[in-house]
Amino acid sequence: MLWLGVAYLGALAALLITSLWTQDDFTGTIQRAWTLENFRTLFTVEVYRTITVRTIAIAALVTVVDVVLAFPIALYMAKVASPRLQRLLVIAVLMPLWASYLVKAYAWRGMLSADGPIAWIASPFGLGTPGYGLVATTITLAYLWLPYMILPVYAGLERVPDSLFEASADLGGGAWTTIRRVVVPMAFPAIVAGSIFTFSLSMGDYIAVKIVGGTGQLLGNVVYDNSSTANNLPFAAAVATVPIVVMLGYLAAARRTGALENL
């Protein structure tokens, strides 16, 4: 517990404290004087506001895409597949997690490139690759975090007794009615649990957007640039608190759905 306190919360506290300091523009040294200057900059400068909204929007979009993709897969795994196929599918879902993050991001860079497979498949239909930008970022992030959505939803659905589905059918509910009125509500806490992963991971990401995002920037890039290139650690810390605050709000909302018991 002490370790958790020091190593984990301590780092967070240090982050918060740093964000309240400021940096000397000439010498680049950190001045340990309490100020809210960093947060004022963050909220008043147009570009940072845009990036904040954009980051939240992309994280939300990635989450929605993952829910839509993960739900049928998880439902199939939990309720349709044979036990043997079920095990194989769990391994298949986990497999991408064994590969390096960078490899996967670069794989998508290749996929989305102007002469890549997507352009090649889409060209007969008069379409092209979306190219590098926010769409590519969303696709890549959605791919990267998909297992983190599938697994909790699968685990959540597996716990639902088959008799509930049978009861719905027995009472006159067709497949869609059963999914809408029984399966989705029963899976909802698990979906929220999965969305905590996809949302928070997307909020903090800066590598994928660097690789496939073109000129688009997310909060993570601002943190990265300010802590490395600009060497403005206090401002980077202030930017980094934004995802934390958003996530705290999200977690508080998630708690009310009972999703946290599903993690």
């Binding site: 008799s163 049978e166 009861a167 009472l171 067709g174």
Partner: peptide, 20 residues
């Protein structure tokens, strides 16, 4: 016919009450 198109209803062994 599928279960939802039959005019019978079932009381399940585990009751299968919708918990939500």
């Amino acid at each position: 016919r599928p279960p939802f198109a039959r005019d019978v209803n079932t009381v399940f062994q585990d009751y299968a009450i919708f918990p939500h």
